[in-house]
Design a protein around this nucleic acid. Sequence first.
DNA 1: ACCGATTATCGAAGCGCTTCGACTGAAGCG
DNA 2: CGCTTCAGTCGAAGCGCTTCGATAATCGGT
Lengths: 334, 334
Amino acid sequence: MSGRAVTISEVARHAGVAVSTVSYVLSGKRAISADTRRRVLDSVRVLGYHPNAGARALASKRANVIALVLPLRAGVHVPVLMQFATSVVTAARRYDHDVLLLTADEGSDGLRRAAASALVDGLVVMDVELHDSRVPLLRDLAEPSVLIGFPADSAGLTCVDLDFARAGALCVEHLAERGHREVALLGAPSVVYDRGTGFARRTREGFVAAVGETGLTGVALPCEENFDQVSATIAELLDSRPGLSGLVVHNEAAVGHVLGALRQYGRRVPGDVAVVAICPDDIAERSSPPLTSVLIPAEEVGRQAVRLLMEKLEGRAVPDGTLLQPRLTVRDST
Amino acid sequence: MSGRAVTISEVARHAGVAVSTVSYVLSGKRAISADTRRRVLDSVRVLGYHPNAGARALASKRANVIALVLPLRAGVHVPVLMQFATSVVTAARRYDHDVLLLTADEGSDGLRRAAASALVDGLVVMDVELHDSRVPLLRDLAEPSVLIGFPADSAGLTCVDLDFARAGALCVEHLAERGHREVALLGAPSVVYDRGTGFARRTREGFVAAVGETGLTGVALPCEENFDQVSATIAELLDSRPGLSGLVVHNEAAVGHVLGALRQYGRRVPGDVAVVAICPDDIAERSSPPLTSVLIPAEEVGRQAVRLLMEKLEGRAVPDGTLLQPRLTVRDST
DNA sequence: ACCGATTATCGAAGCGCTTCGACTGAAGCG
DNA sequence: CGCTTCAGTCGAAGCGCTTCGATAATCGGT
């Protein structure tokens, strides 16, 4: 129950200086003598001063808050989302910014409101689809934004993402190196492709292209997320392609089921079928056997997104697209 | 690229009224004639006016923002966390509030900073442990807060949660009704119990108590989250307790593995072993067979937390503890 | 020892909003 | 019919901060 909040003028009085001097000590925007600085900082500490965010925002026209816009869709793997979110928050704090959480269900209006009311200085928009309704708005919003994911037309926007095409290709190349000749991709549920979700489609494209380039045989299939359907898909696959010996799984919710189904049909991993997953490390590690995988570098994507946004807030120019290179970790499944 | 933001005085000029009149139209705090109201609202629409959040916060001493404090711990199931988060955001928006995301890694300082700088009007703190270091701070913060989860000593705090003890008991009662005499609880990883996580311990207590009351035989075991360890635990369990026919699983990450292990050892569900899970519906539904389950009503918990916080912000008194009653959905596993 | 440049500090003017008190005219009342 | 009452509106005073320009005080250079 601290009483009324301490204001800058109380700090000034306590330190025996002008209000503006306190402000300059705290912001560092003008030279202040070492002696004065110390006295002011002491007073700040003694009184427990915290600048009032609203007043600061009003006077400086900077809220020091960025918006994080999350999707609320089926088929996006939530833990990965959460990794993005926490890395965005952590990164933002390093730039002395806070994060306001906006969810997609308020739609574009939510973005417009937050931006127009100067609640936030900029936006990080997650899980952008190929034809995303928020994109036109972002394009002509006064506030800068950074997208995680690439829309079909990314002109005039700043986007960051893992290079999913490369990730898909990397998996194929790894399997090819291991001597596999016939491979398959089990991807997202079909609804995700239909919706035009960039990362799913791009992974598939990368997979297909790499299959061509390496001279392998391969199919890419969507993959639902319940055990029975996964099991049926696997059964059909094993049946129709007896030469199949390599599997790429790009579906966090289904990897466990895939392994279960293979076990069910008596296929050993990696003896009979090698499996590469595109998923977070913890999932790969707690599977049996631990899976060779390409992880989504959520932490880095979030960090880069914030860094780019901060650069834009400073008025600096930034590259339009940033594609992070995937890395494959070999474990026991290939 | 909307130019400079529209201010209330531009709206006032456009509508031919005083600034204060516009303010009263928008807030409804004084009577305004129907005619004036219409003119003002028209101007607001035409000009695309959005009140400046900082100015509003400064003048009214209300930011209309609440903080959502998320944990960043292992062993908490992330999708459930996310459900909480989105329901908090959605609920807050219905009260015309936004949500600032704070993560636990900033610790208590983060809470203090957000509160002291008047960035937020109140806090919702998720996943509170029995002995949570944030609790003392919350207790004497000027800003109201609501906890999701119960600390050991909840005096002077407002807490909401699912009644996990009841949830554990409910599972046992259901198995007893189905005629099972010997049951087991597979809970969280042991680290979660050691940490003093309320929901894990309370579920176990409820389970144990109900086993006693119904006259069944039962054990409660922690459960790690990788397949091989789950498989070993199940093997040992089946081996040491041949009469075992009912399983309660309170571990979202492990349910899939549990079913896989039972399949591996030739046990049919529910023929040989009945399984009840405490987990979100989507996990229960996409398992094979679909699991009888008690779900964590994340949506309702979040909504209630926000409601309670809003009541406190209005200065109304609220109950200290709110326990939500669990409901069991019968599916194909029992 | 005087001058322009520098350095350190102050005072005051807002930033855009809410809210209080005051004012006006019309309605209600005996 | 003069008086209160009240609905409807206005003007102005802040809210706590940043920032601009001004003012002293200090300094090296000559």
